[in-house]
Structure formats: C-alpha cells, structure tokens
Design a protein around this nucleic acid. Structure first.
Length: 566
RNA sequence: GCGCGGGUAGUCUAGUGGUAGGACAACGCCCUUCCGAGGCGUUAGCCCGGGUUCAAAUCCCGGCCCGCGCACCA
C-alpha cells in the first residue's frame, strides 16, 4: 500500500466499507477527517457553482422509476448485450465484437445477437465457443413497493432528477434563460470490476450543474473573469495547447464561449480546493469516447498515483435530455422566448371547411383538421396527409387558402444544457495526494498534509505545553472559545509537544495554538504555522479575529505578530 | 469475468506442520519550559468456510478482499 493510503486509513480519512464482513469492492466509508474534508469541498463547490452563478440547488430521489431511464437512454445504452467465452472467460460487448469480426451492425437484443453468433458460428479469439448472450446493465435495479412492485433503478447520475423537474424549475426562473440547477448527492453504478481504490466506486458523490441556455447563445456574461486564465488543453486529436481561454475560443480549440467559461471556473475551483495547477489539464473526449447524450465534452484531469484521472466532465448535452423526456412523457419541455420586437409575417394559411370535412372524413375529421392547420399552405389542388400511417388525400374543396398577416411574438425553444459534472470522491482524493508532502524539521523527516486552510477538517489544535492541571484547564477553555466562534478546533494533551505538532501536521491542521508558561503571565498564546513550523505570540483577545483571517486567506502569520521561533 | 501474485494487532512486518514475535501507533502513570525524547505498564492479530493431520498462520479446495495485466468503465 502506498504511504499516503496508509496514512489516510490510519488517521481516519477513509477506509473500506463492510470490513468486518470481508469488505466489498467499490465501496468506501469516509472517516471523521475524510468526511470533513469532502464536506468542505462541497461547500466550496456550492460557493462557486450555486451562490456565484445564476443557479439554484435542489435535491431529488436516488431511487428512480424505470421510465426515466427508458427516456434518458440509460436503460438501452446501459443494457449492453454481452457474450462470454466458455473457454477463456473473456467477456465482450456483443455489438462491438460482431462489428469488428463480421462487419455487421447487430441490434442490441439478445435474439439478434444469438442469431448472428449461431448463423456465422462466431468464435472467441481464443477459438472457444460463446455461452448464451446475456444482458448486463450498469444500473442497480430495485423494486418499489410491496409484492411485485414497480421496477426502479438507483440513479447513475444526479442530472436526471433535474431534467425531470424542468417545468417546475423553468417556472421558478420565470422562463428566463439562462439558468442553472445544481444537485449534490449520491449516484450508483454497478461496475463490473471496480479497481483502483477510491477512483472507481459503485456508490459515489457527484456535484452536478445543469446550465440551461438558448441554443443560439452559447455564451456567458461572466466569461471575462476567466478570459485571460492560461489553461493546459488536450483536444480530441491529442494536440496539446497552453492557451488563455480567450485564445482557445478564438482559435476554435474550444468550440464555444460557455464551455470555455466553465472550464475556467472549474479550474479556479479545483485550484482553490487544493489541486496542483501543474498536475491539472483539460482533455476533450475523442469522438468514440463520448457518452450517448453528449455532443462535446471536456474532462478536467488530475495527475495522481493512478496516472491522469478524470475528476470533472464538462459536457454539452445539447437538447438530448429535454427532448427525450418531452417525447416519452408527452410534456412540452420548451421555453417560450419572446423576440425583442414582434415580427410581422405574411403567410398563406389553410382554413379547413369544417362543415364539409366532418361528414366526409367522420372519425378522422379531427385529425385531418389538426394536420391541415399545422402544415404550410401551397397553391395546390389537394394535399396528402399521413394519418396514423394511412395516406389520406384531401381535395381543394375541403379548405380555403387565405393570405394573412400575423404577428409573431417569440418562439418555443428547447434549451441546450451545459453540464459541469464533478466527481467529489476523486477530487477529494486528488486533493489529498496533491497536498501530501514530506520535509525535514530539525533533522527529522516529517509528513505534512498541506491542505488549503479553508478545506482542512481540523482547522486549529489547542495544546497545553505541559500535561499539568492549569495548562490543561486553560487550553480547554480556549478550545471552547474557538469552537463557539465557529472554528473547527481540537484539544490534545497526549504526548510531548513535538509529537502533537507532528500529529496535526499529518492531518493537515493549519494552525496550533499552544498554552505555555507565559500565558499565565500576560494572557498570550502562540500560533504555530503548519507549513513553516514558525511561531508568533498573540494576545488571547486578538486570537479569534486573527485565526479567522488566517483561515480564510493565505496570509503569513508574521502579519499578526513577531516570529519568535524559526 | 479471466490470468498471475498477495491477505499475521490500528499500521508495517517476522514466522515452511508443534505455545504467534517485533517495530511504530494508541492508552495509563512518571518525567518534561516548544517540534515523533526517556522510563514503567497496558490494550491489540493469523480474511472466511471446508478438508488433510495427533497437531494448520503454515499443506489442499472453495469463497471474499487487495495489487498487477487483459476485458469493462454509458
């Protein structure tokens, strides 16, 4: 096990779930410190992507009815048909294997695959025979209600909950684009073989923003904030760039401004959370790599001991989701966008003659009228309509054509959605790896977790220099005071002072406050800085404001007192 | 899912069939005027199940978990 994983487990950041029953791959517990860190990162995310965005946050169920995933494409895109070799045990996605070996496009059904495998006597690469094709789906299936119940799935992404509630949300935003809706929560994927510890989990934490925009306005008013940020980019053909976002948009490396905006914002967020800029890049998905719903996608990747790992995906999902849900549910999921001024158009309009259509077409009359009104009028002797698959000829005697002038006030638009989707577990892990460091203090090696001050799970430790009654009482008093001020504080009197400093270095606590002999003479304590191990002395009455400022900035302790120990 | 290698205290590790040992950590006491000091003491372990054997951490079989390679990763 790597040194850092050993530290994370031993000190209570995370560990494998269900340990006493043998464990299960793909699940982890967050211990006290890991949970604290992840929560801080979530709060930071909320600052960036909800509070300082035209966006709101919602919370929707993790258990979802089946219909959602039939519409979203997950039920089919997910239920791949797999074939397994009886001899060597290798599993292939049937349609891919058939295409590769036979050049045939196979339907993604058991029957179709079975038929092809049998009629072509398809064998495995090793020469072995294939077992019966069977489906595998990466969603966890469940049952809602008693008895046979209704089929449900645990959500594979939080996003669907947002698309489903689109009408309510558009209403909440009073039908004004653009707007964003965020959700932070758990999602589930029944991975075939989860590996790499915390990197591929079966139950994981996502923070997703669905940002709805007008399809013709893929810009963002906040772009200037990040326009001059320099970013490492790798496009879908593997070309590498080091450009400002402004240049990237101008050169067409990033196809539109809003994707560039979210790449910039994502980068700033990741840096603030503690990702190392030198170990961060943005990589565009190759054409064969994108999800079924995405038209373009840029991943933020962090370099870790597992190599480059995806921590954020920023996808242009187009109108894929809203259109599908609209089609499957029958609900209108568009937004009426008014023109700045009404447009006058002259057009020829078909006016159905009700009194003639009724008797002639009888039951079909209603549909005939509906269709006639919806098509463009031509000066023809008849029109042909397709009613429920049947061609129906409607002659000129059944309608008039009138030239009318209409005012059009706007248009219905199905918004496009830009989705920055964050894997919080991977980000948390990458932050831990990028923060992990070793240095030499007084000739001895020290492990130190250089977490950003504002994400540290324990922000301040209060330590009595000696384990004596009056030192301890004073330190406990200060602990209570700091906690009451909202600072995450711990008290520790176990072992020598040096040992305690090391303990807090290892869990990334930025500052230690020590009660020493002088405390009892002039009511001062010392503040020790984790990164430099330097100390200042400060009056107890100034302690809270000084710590609060230190914890929310990267100021040096020397701005708050004289360094007395290097 | 397949193949190879692993699984001994919180962590790391010794132990090739005969009473499971150490280091670090943790906890208690002593000592102690600022960076893993020292002394004394304490807690704590053979992944699970089956088999072979008088006797299994050790040998065999199955499972679970971990690592690596292949496959998979919408």
């Amino acid at each position: 096990m790597s040194e850092i994983m050993e530290t994370l487990i031993r000190r209570g950041f995370l560990w494998q779930s269900f340990e006493i029953y043998g464990g299960m791959a793909g699940f982890i517990d967050y211990g006290p410190l890991g949970n604290g860190l992840r929560r801080r990162i979530e709060d930071l995310w909320r600052e960036f992507f909800v509070v300082n965005e035209r966006a709101v946050e919602i919370d929707t169920p993790t258990v979802c009815v089946e219909d959602i995933f039939i519409a979203s494409g997950h039920a089919t895109s997910f239920t791949d048909v797999a074939i397994e070799c009886k001899k060597c045990g290798r599993v292939f996605r049937a349609d891919h294997y058939i295409k590769e070996k036979l050049g045939i496009e196979a339907d993604e059904t058991i029957e179709s695959v079975k038929e092809i495998v049998e009629s072509f006597d398809l064998k495995c690469e090793c020469g072995g025979e294939f077992d019966e094709p069977k489906p595998f789906n990466l969603m966890f299936e469940t049952k809602i209600g008693p008895g046979k119940g209704k089929k449900g799935y645990l959500r594979p992404e939080t996003a669907q909950g947002i698309f489903i509630a689109f009408k309510r949300l558009a209403d909440y935003f009073r039908d004004r684009l653009p707007f964003g809706v965020a959700q932070i929560g758990r999602a589930y994927r029944n991975e075939i073989s989860p590996r790499q510890g915390v990197i591929r989990l079966r139950e994981f934490n996502q923070a997703e923003l669905e940002f709805f925009v007008h399809p013709k306005e893929k810009t963002h008013p906040g772009f200037d904030t990040y326009a001059n940020d320099r970013v490492r980019l790798v496009d879908k053909n593997g070309n590498e760039y080091d450009l400002t976002l402004k240049e990237a948009v101008e050169k067409g490396v990033i196809i539109n401004q809003i994707l560039a905006y979210f790449i910039g914002k994502t980068r700033r967020f990741l840096l603030k959370a503690g990702i190392d800029d030198a170990r961060l890049r943005f990589r565009q998905h190759r054409d064969d790599e994108r999800a079924h719903y995405a038209s373009d996608c840029w991943d933020a990747e962090a370099f870790t001991s597992y190599g480059w790992i995806e921590v954020v995906g920023i996808a242009d999902r187009g109108d894929y989701d809203l259109s599908s849900h609209s089609r499957f549910s029958g609900e209108d999921l568009s937004i009426f966008v008014p023109f700045s001024e009404p447009v006058k158009v002259r057009r020829k309009k078909i006016i159905p003659k009700m009194n003639k259509i009724g008797p002639a077409f009888r039951q079909k009359a209603k549909k005939v009228v509906e269709m006639l009104s919806s098509i463009e009028a031509k000066d023809a002797d008849y029109v042909e309509l397709d009613i429920d698959g049947e061609k129906v000829r409607v002659d000129r005697e059944f309608f008039d054509i009138q030239e009318v002038e209409e005012e059009i006030h706007g248009e219905k638009v199905v918004p496009h959605v830009i989705e920055p989707s964050f894997g919080l577990d991977r980000i948390t892990f990458a932050v831990l790896e990028h923060s992990f460091d070793k240095d030499i203090v007084d000739g001895e090696e020290r492990r130190v977790l250089r977490l950003k001050r504002w994400v540290a799970p324990v922000q301040v430790a209060v330590l009595p220099l000696l384990s004596k009654g009056d030192f301890e009482a004073k330190a406990k008093e200060i602990t209570v005071m700091l906690k009451a001020a909202g600072i995450f504080t711990e008290y520790d009197d176990s072992g020598s002072i040096g040992r305690r400093y090391r303990r807090f270095d290892e869990i990334g606590t930025p500052f230690c406050v020590t009660v020493d002999h002088q405390t009892f003479e002039d009511n001062t304590v010392t503040i020790r800085d984790r990164d430099t191990t330097r100390q200042i002395r400060i009056g107890l009455d100034e302690l809270i404001p000084a710590l609060k400022e230190l914890l929310s900035t990267e100021k040096d302790i020397s701005e708050f007192g004289v360094i007395f120990k290097e």
